[in-house]
Amino acid sequence: MSERSKPSIFWLLGAIALPLMGLMVKFRFHDREKMPQTGAVVITPNHYSNIDPVVIGVATWYLGRLPRFMAKASILKVPVLGWILRKSGQIPVERGGSTRSSAALMAAKELVTKERAVIVYPEGSLTRDPDIWPMRGKSGAVRLALELGIPVVPVAHWGTQNLMARYSKKINVFPRHTIDVKVGDPVDLSEFQGKPLDNKTLTAATTKVMDAITALLEDLRGEKAPATRWNPAEHNQSETGRF
């Protein structure tokens, strides 16, 4: 029996989110069979709208997995919301993006023992690329995958910007929007297994993941991404945001 079929708080969240999202969005999935239905996995989507977590959370449900995210530890202390996040197995991340707190490590290890999926935005925040292509990634996703020995599955989505534009807080409810979601093959990180997780290793592994996400997005958009990936540090832009 799949995790999604077992009674959980996700049933309550789904009863609220799925009908509402269905009124606004039609999902069009590509290569959905590539999403592993069992076993621990790190799912890495592109990120360009504030409503991405809702969109990707619902899409992940439709793809057969329960959506769990890296969540700022402070959010888990908020009344009601924090309780929901804790009960649904979200992984707390301390300020600065560390996953080395005892709570985070315990939650991360549960990914393996309970064969769960976790969604990590490797860009860390909304992309700053002017044309909404994926920007330079952070190492959190690959560090988690390499430390725990679990696969990274890249995912790209396109069309979410019509539902909520980048940096906007306004939802464009009508007309109903089509969002394409494409799942990729697990990223081959075997060359990094057993190596010290230093900056060189993590940067190279993260680049492979970002290349995979970008290739999926190129397929959805029908165009090529820029040869050089946008680097916020070179444009004096903040990279603060999600893990």
Rank of each mutant, 00 (worst) to 15 (best):
S2Q: 12
S5A: 15
K6Y: 12
I9W: 05
F10Y: 08
A15R: 13
I16H: 12
P19E: 14
G22K: 02
M24R: 11
F27C: 03
F29N: 09
F29L: 05
H30R: 09
R32N: 14
Q37W: 07
Q37V: 02
G39C: 12
T44N: 02
N46W: 00
H47C: 02
Y48Q: 12
D52G: 05
P53L: 05
V54M: 10
V54Y: 11
V55M: 10
G57A: 10
G57R: 09
V58A: 13
V58N: 07
A59L: 09
A59P: 03
W61A: 06
Y62H: 14
L63Q: 06
G64F: 01
G64Q: 04
R68P: 01
F69W: 09
A71Q: 03
A71F: 04
S74F: 08
I75W: 12
L76Y: 12
V78P: 00
P79N: 13
V80R: 10
G82W: 10
I84E: 08
I84A: 11
L85R: 05
Q90C: 10
P92M: 12
P92V: 12
V93H: 01
V93M: 06
E94C: 04
G97A: 06
G97H: 05
T99W: 01
R100S: 13
R100C: 04
S101H: 11
S102P: 08
A103N: 15
A104M: 09
A104F: 13
M106S: 15
M106P: 00
K109M: 13
E110D: 15
L111K: 07
L111M: 08
K114Q: 15
I119W: 00
I119A: 02
I119M: 10
V120A: 02
V120R: 00
Y121A: 03
E123R: 06
R128V: 04
D129I: 08
D131V: 03
R136M: 04
R136S: 02
K138R: 01
G140A: 12
A141N: 11
V142F: 06
R143S: 06
R143Y: 14
E147H: 07
P151N: 07
V155F: 06
V155H: 09
A156Q: 09
A156W: 09
H157Q: 07
T160Y: 04
R166F: 13
R166I: 13
K170P: 01
F174I: 14
F174Q: 10
I179F: 13
D185A: 11
V187E: 01
E191R: 15
E191C: 10
E191L: 08
E191N: 11
P196I: 14
D198Y: 07
D198W: 06
N199D: 15
N199C: 03
T201W: 12
A205T: 04
T206K: 00
K208C: 06
K208D: 09
K208P: 05
M210I: 01
A212P: 09
I213H: 01
A215L: 12
A215R: 14
L216D: 11
L217E: 09
D219A: 14
G222H: 13
A225C: 10
A225E: 12
A227I: 00
A227R: 06
R229P: 00
W230F: 15
W230V: 00
P232I: 11
P232W: 11
Q237R: 09
E239A: 05
